[in-house]
């Protein structure tokens, strides 16, 4: 299957790091930095996986996730959410909203790679 990931993140260095990790795994990596237009881009690109930052300009990751899960097309879309806020409540809310995997920054590279592999496995 097509390994196409959309990385929604606004920190250039983190984009750089994740791009490096995932492209090495054979992923086609697209990036987007604006929360407000993220859902629109996802609809257009229809990636197999979304890596979503929580704190984004325009619209936060949780709202984007909720919107996706309301759309029948994306109910099962694997979404890996990353957050630097470190609040327990964020994780609870994200899980309630139907996040596929939730991870707190700073992450270990192995964790991210393993998570992405698992998600793809599950989706299959």
């Amino acid at each position: 299957m097509d390994k196409h990931v959309l990385l929604v993140e606004d920190e250039m260095n983190i984009i750089e790091a994740i791009r490096f990790l995932l492209s090495r795994e054979g992923w086609r990596v697209d990036t987007h930095s604006d929360g407000a237009t993220a859902v629109e881009i996802i609809r257009k690109l229809r990636p197999t996986l979304v890596v979503l930052d929580y704190m984004l300009p325009g619209k936060n990751g949780l709202d984007i996730l909720l919107e996706l899960r309301n759309d029948p097309d994306f109910v099962n879309l694997p979404v890996l959410m990353l957050t630097a806020r470190g609040q327990l409540r964020d994780r609870e809310q994200a899980e309630k909203a139907g996040v596929s995997r939730f991870m707190t920054k700073p992450f270990s590279n192995t964790e991210v790679v393993t998570a992405v592999r698992d998600l793809v496995q599950l989706a299959r």
């Binding site: 920190e11 260095n13 983190i14 750089e16 790091a17 994740i18 490096f20 990790l21 704190m55 630097a84 806020r85 470190g86 609040q87 707190t104 920054k105 700073p106 992450f107 270990s108 590279n109 192995t110």
Partner: peptide, 17 residues
């Protein structure tokens, strides 16, 4: 938390790379 974790994320990630 956000302000501290964000640079630390890059640092950790690139150090691991």
């Amino acid at each position: 938390s956000h302000e501290l974790r964000t640079p630390m994320t890059s640092i950790r990630s690139f150090t691991e790379i």
